[in-house]
């Protein structure tokens, strides 16, 4: 059957495309340990799944080839077979084992990407607040006391903790070559751990649909060695103007703007919605049940 060959060709062409080196796909061309971890999981799952697809396709080809009506005699009457406990057990247990294997891979990797990348734990992570508004990204560097719009400079080989939130619809902060995405939402702050180990320019964007300007809701990422990064920061301290509240409010208006650089951050006058879970009435009397979880959240952050 033609189908079989078509399928095999497709499968092998995926494999070649995915692992091909001349023009690698962004997600499979990681420039940092988080993206590398994810690319690794993706490749493990692709190879595992390829085995399953092959088993199915081979069985399928055999069945279609051997048992077509044109190959059997006119008086052949297919037998009545209820099933087979052994065979059915086989195709229950083997998938269960595969699922267990992939579950282990998945859960372990999920814990890894939710923490500072391995080997960099001794470094103080750089905290950058990334806030989205229709359709811009505002990056605040509280440590350096600077703010940029629609572009991001980061030092290489230093873990970075992005604090994500939004002044509008849910947006998803995504730099494919550095690691997977996470949502920026209006009533809470999410943390995304990333790290670049190679200097270079990377594409970043909002991946979650957020209205008519969504397609161009992108930003540029430049990863620089530590000293060049410090130089860049110093330069801004010397040249950029101070971010004022009215200027920031103007920036929040829906639309697309170019890139901007400021001294000072908007966090001073518009703090991020942290430890909040949307319960805007902070400090009011709370039910004890949730008080516990809140306390835990607080201590967790102090670690």
């Amino acid at each position: 059957m033609k189908m079989k060959w078509a399928l095999l060709t497709i499968i092998f062409s995926i494999a070649t495309v995915l692992t091909g080196c001349d023009n690698p796909l962004a997600v499979l061309d990681p420039k940092g340990p988080v993206a590398a971890n994810q690319a690794n999981v993706i490749m493990i799952s692709i190879w595992t799944m390829l085995i399953i697809v092959l088993v199915v396709v081979i069985l399928y080809a055999i069945m279609l080839f051997k048992y077509r009506a044109s190959k059997s005699s006119d008086d052949y009457v297919p037998p009545h077979v209820e099933g087979s406990h052994v065979l059915e057990a086989i195709w229950t247990i083997i998938p269960i084992l595969i699922v267990i294997f992939l579950s282990v891979v998945s859960v372990r990797s999920t814990y890894e990407v939710e923490a500072t990348p391995k080997g960099y734990e001794d470094q103080e992570p750089l905290i950058i607040y990334a806030a989205s508004s229709n359709w811009k990204w505002h990056f605040s560097y509280p440590e350096e006391d600077i703010e940029t719009v629609n572009y991001l400079f980061i030092p290489t080989n230093r873990p970075i903790e992005f604090k994500l939130y939004s002044y509008g619809p849910i947006s998803s902060f995504w730099i494919p070559q550095l690691g997977g995405q996470k949502y920026a939402m209006s009533d809470m702050v999410n943390t995304l751990h990333l790290l670049a180990d190679t200097p270079g320019d990377y594409m970043g964007r909002n991946a979650n649909f957020s209205g008519s300007g969504f397609a161009e809701h992108t930003f540029n990422v430049k990863a620089l060695p530590e000293e060049e990064y410090t130089k860049w920061v110093d330069e801004i301290h010397g040249t950029a103007k101070k971010l004022t509240e009215s200027e920031f409010d103007e920036l929040l208006e829906p639309g697309h703007v170019g890139q901007y650089t400021f001294n000072g951050t908007h966090l001073d006058f518009k703090p991020a919605p942290e430890h909040n879970h949307g319960a805007s009435g902070q400090g009011e009397s709370k039910h004890s049940e949730h008080e516990d979880s809140k306390d835990e959240a607080e201590t967790e952050h102090q670690h």
């Binding site: 319960a279 009435g281 009397s285 039910h287 949730h290």
Partner: peptide, 12 residues
């Protein structure tokens, strides 16, 4: 939503 009382009253 029970704890999301904003500036309004809580159940108690």
């Amino acid at each position: 939503l029970v704890d999301r009382t904003a500036n309004g009253p809580v159940g108690g």
